[in-house]
Protein backbone atom coordinates (compact mmCIF):
# COMPACT_ATOMS: atom_id res chain seq x y z
CA UNK A 1 0.00 0.00 0.00
CA UNK A 2 1.41 3.38 -1.00
CA UNK A 3 1.05 6.37 1.27
CA UNK A 4 -0.84 9.20 -0.44
CA UNK A 5 -2.26 12.41 1.06
CA UNK A 6 -5.66 10.69 1.05
CA UNK A 7 -4.33 7.79 3.16
CA UNK A 8 -2.82 10.25 5.66
CA UNK A 9 -6.11 12.21 5.79
CA UNK A 10 -8.01 8.96 6.30
CA UNK A 11 -5.69 7.95 9.16
CA UNK A 12 -6.05 11.33 10.89
CA UNK A 13 -9.86 11.32 10.49
CA UNK A 14 -10.07 7.70 11.70
CA UNK A 15 -8.06 8.68 14.81
CA UNK A 16 -10.46 11.61 15.42
CA UNK A 17 -13.52 9.37 14.98
CA UNK A 18 -12.31 6.44 17.10
CA UNK A 19 -10.61 8.66 19.69
CA UNK A 20 -13.75 10.76 20.03
CA UNK A 21 -15.88 7.62 20.39
CA UNK A 22 -13.51 6.29 23.04
CA UNK A 23 -13.71 9.64 24.85
CA UNK A 24 -17.53 9.50 24.83
CA UNK A 25 -17.66 6.13 26.61
CA UNK A 26 -14.70 6.70 28.94
CA UNK A 27 -15.03 10.30 30.18
CA UNK A 28 -16.43 10.73 33.68
CA UNK A 29 -18.13 14.03 32.89
CA UNK A 30 -21.27 14.12 30.74
CA UNK A 31 -20.40 17.50 29.20
CA UNK A 32 -16.95 16.26 28.19
CA UNK A 33 -18.57 13.14 26.70
CA UNK A 34 -20.84 15.39 24.59
CA UNK A 35 -17.82 17.37 23.34
CA UNK A 36 -16.00 14.15 22.45
CA UNK A 37 -19.11 13.13 20.49
CA UNK A 38 -18.76 16.32 18.41
CA UNK A 39 -15.13 15.34 17.67
CA UNK A 40 -16.22 11.86 16.54
CA UNK A 41 -18.96 13.35 14.33
CA UNK A 42 -16.40 15.73 12.82
CA UNK A 43 -14.23 12.73 11.91
CA UNK A 44 -17.21 11.11 10.17
CA UNK A 45 -17.86 14.35 8.23
CA UNK A 46 -14.26 14.24 7.01
CA UNK A 47 -14.66 10.60 5.97
CA UNK A 48 -17.69 11.62 3.86
CA UNK A 49 -15.47 14.17 2.12
CA UNK A 50 -12.93 11.43 1.34
CA UNK A 51 -15.78 9.33 -0.09
CA UNK A 52 -16.59 12.27 -2.42
CA UNK A 53 -19.96 12.85 -0.80
CA UNK A 54 -19.76 16.60 0.01
CA UNK A 55 -23.52 16.96 0.52
CA UNK A 56 -23.51 14.25 3.20
CA UNK A 57 -20.49 15.96 4.78
CA UNK A 58 -22.37 19.28 4.84
CA UNK A 59 -25.41 17.61 6.42
CA UNK A 60 -23.16 15.87 8.94
CA UNK A 61 -21.70 19.24 9.99
CA UNK A 62 -25.02 21.14 9.95
CA UNK A 63 -27.34 18.59 11.50
CA UNK A 64 -25.19 16.29 13.61
CA UNK A 65 -22.40 18.61 14.76
CA UNK A 66 -24.75 21.59 14.86
CA UNK A 67 -28.25 20.60 15.87
CA UNK A 68 -27.85 17.17 17.50
CA UNK A 69 -24.79 18.26 19.51
CA UNK A 70 -26.60 21.42 20.70
CA UNK A 71 -29.64 19.33 21.62
CA UNK A 72 -27.55 16.81 23.59
CA UNK A 73 -25.61 19.56 25.40
CA UNK A 74 -28.80 21.43 26.34
CA UNK A 75 -30.48 18.19 27.44
CA UNK A 76 -27.54 17.64 29.82
CA UNK A 77 -27.72 21.27 31.00
CA UNK A 78 -31.42 21.25 31.87
CA UNK A 79 -31.45 17.79 33.49
CA UNK A 80 -31.37 17.86 37.28
CA UNK A 81 -28.21 16.56 38.98
CA UNK A 82 -26.91 14.92 35.78
CA UNK A 83 -24.08 17.50 35.81
CA UNK A 84 -22.79 16.02 39.05
CA UNK A 85 -22.53 12.43 37.81
CA UNK A 86 -18.90 11.36 37.92
CA UNK A 87 -19.22 7.65 37.15
CA UNK A 88 -18.79 6.53 33.56
CA UNK A 89 -20.22 3.02 34.05
CA UNK A 90 -23.40 1.69 35.61
CA UNK A 91 -24.63 -1.84 36.36
CA UNK A 92 -25.69 -2.50 32.76
CA UNK A 93 -22.20 -2.13 31.27
CA UNK A 94 -21.60 -5.88 30.59
CA UNK A 95 -24.83 -6.03 28.56
CA UNK A 96 -23.88 -2.89 26.60
CA UNK A 97 -20.36 -4.24 25.97
CA UNK A 98 -21.82 -7.55 24.72
CA UNK A 99 -24.19 -5.81 22.29
CA UNK A 100 -21.41 -3.51 21.06
CA UNK A 101 -19.10 -6.49 20.46
CA UNK A 102 -21.87 -8.30 18.56
CA UNK A 103 -22.48 -5.26 16.32
CA UNK A 104 -18.72 -4.88 15.71
CA UNK A 105 -18.34 -8.56 14.71
CA UNK A 106 -21.40 -8.44 12.41
CA UNK A 107 -20.26 -5.22 10.71
CA UNK A 108 -16.73 -6.64 10.42
CA UNK A 109 -17.99 -9.70 8.53
CA UNK A 110 -20.13 -7.54 6.24
CA UNK A 111 -17.23 -5.19 5.44
CA UNK A 112 -14.74 -8.02 4.88
CA UNK A 113 -17.28 -9.76 2.63
CA UNK A 114 -17.71 -6.57 0.62
CA UNK A 115 -13.97 -6.25 0.03
CA UNK A 116 -13.91 -9.61 -1.76
CA UNK A 117 -16.29 -8.49 -4.49
CA UNK A 118 -15.65 -4.77 -4.47
CA UNK A 119 -16.63 -3.09 -7.73
CA UNK A 120 -15.54 0.37 -8.87
CA UNK A 121 -18.49 2.74 -8.58
CA UNK A 122 -19.51 5.25 -11.21
CA UNK A 123 -17.96 8.70 -10.89
CA UNK A 124 -19.99 11.19 -8.90
CA UNK A 125 -21.01 14.10 -11.14
CA UNK A 126 -19.32 17.29 -9.90
CA UNK A 127 -22.62 19.19 -9.84
CA UNK A 128 -24.46 16.54 -7.78
CA UNK A 129 -25.70 19.06 -5.16
CA UNK A 130 -27.02 21.31 -7.95
CA UNK A 131 -28.83 18.35 -9.54
CA UNK A 132 -30.36 17.44 -6.17
CA UNK A 133 -31.52 21.01 -5.64
CA UNK A 134 -33.11 21.14 -9.09
CA UNK A 135 -34.78 17.76 -8.46
CA UNK A 136 -36.25 19.03 -5.15
CA UNK A 137 -38.35 21.70 -6.88
CA UNK A 138 -39.09 19.90 -10.15
CA UNK A 139 -42.67 18.64 -10.53
CA UNK A 140 -41.28 15.57 -12.33
CA UNK A 141 -39.13 14.64 -9.33
CA UNK A 142 -39.41 15.39 -5.60
CA UNK A 143 -41.62 18.49 -5.47
CA UNK A 144 -44.37 16.90 -3.36
CA UNK A 145 -42.06 15.31 -0.72
CA UNK A 146 -40.16 18.61 -0.58
CA UNK A 147 -43.27 20.65 0.23
CA UNK A 148 -44.61 17.94 2.56
CA UNK A 149 -41.29 18.14 4.45
CA UNK A 150 -41.95 21.84 5.17
CA UNK A 151 -45.40 21.01 6.55
CA UNK A 152 -43.86 18.21 8.63
CA UNK A 153 -41.28 20.62 10.05
CA UNK A 154 -44.05 23.14 10.77
CA UNK A 155 -45.99 20.47 12.68
CA UNK A 156 -42.84 19.39 14.55
CA UNK A 157 -42.09 22.94 15.64
CA UNK A 158 -45.66 23.69 16.80
CA UNK A 159 -45.76 20.34 18.63
CA UNK A 160 -42.43 21.02 20.33
CA UNK A 161 -43.57 24.46 21.51
CA UNK A 162 -46.94 23.14 22.77
CA UNK A 163 -45.29 20.27 24.67
CA UNK A 164 -42.43 22.37 26.07
CA UNK A 165 -44.67 25.19 27.33
CA UNK A 166 -47.03 22.95 29.32
Amino acid sequence: MTITPVTIAFAVLAIFTLGGGLGVVSSRNMVHAALYLVLALFGVAGLYVLLEAPFLAAIQVLVYMGAIAVLITITIMVTRRIMGITESVNRQWPLAAGIAALVAVTLGFVVLGLFNGLLPVADVPPDNIEQLGAAFVSHQAYLLPFEVASVLLLAAMIGAIVVARD
Binding site: F55, A58, I59, L62, V63, G66, A67, V70, L71, I74, T75, M77, V78, I129, E130, L132, G133, F136, V137, F146, A149, S150, L153, A156, M157, A160, I161, A164, R165
Partner: peptide, 21 residues
Protein backbone atom coordinates in the same frame (compact mmCIF):
# COMPACT_ATOMS: atom_id res chain seq x y z
CA UNK B 1 -33.02 26.90 26.72
CA UNK B 2 -34.58 23.69 25.44
CA UNK B 3 -37.30 25.51 23.46
CA UNK B 4 -34.62 27.58 21.77
CA UNK B 5 -32.73 24.37 20.94
CA UNK B 6 -35.87 22.81 19.40
CA UNK B 7 -36.64 25.94 17.32
CA UNK B 8 -33.01 25.98 16.16
CA UNK B 9 -33.25 22.27 15.26
CA UNK B 10 -36.27 22.83 12.98
CA UNK B 11 -34.59 25.69 11.10
CA UNK B 12 -31.39 23.66 10.85
CA UNK B 13 -33.30 20.87 9.08
CA UNK B 14 -34.90 23.52 6.84
CA UNK B 15 -31.36 24.56 5.89
CA UNK B 16 -30.57 21.02 4.70
CA UNK B 17 -33.40 21.29 2.13
CA UNK B 18 -32.69 24.87 1.14
CA UNK B 19 -28.93 24.40 0.65
CA UNK B 20 -29.19 22.34 -2.61
CA UNK B 21 -32.05 24.58 -3.73
Amino acid sequence: YYIFALVFLVFDIELVFLYPW
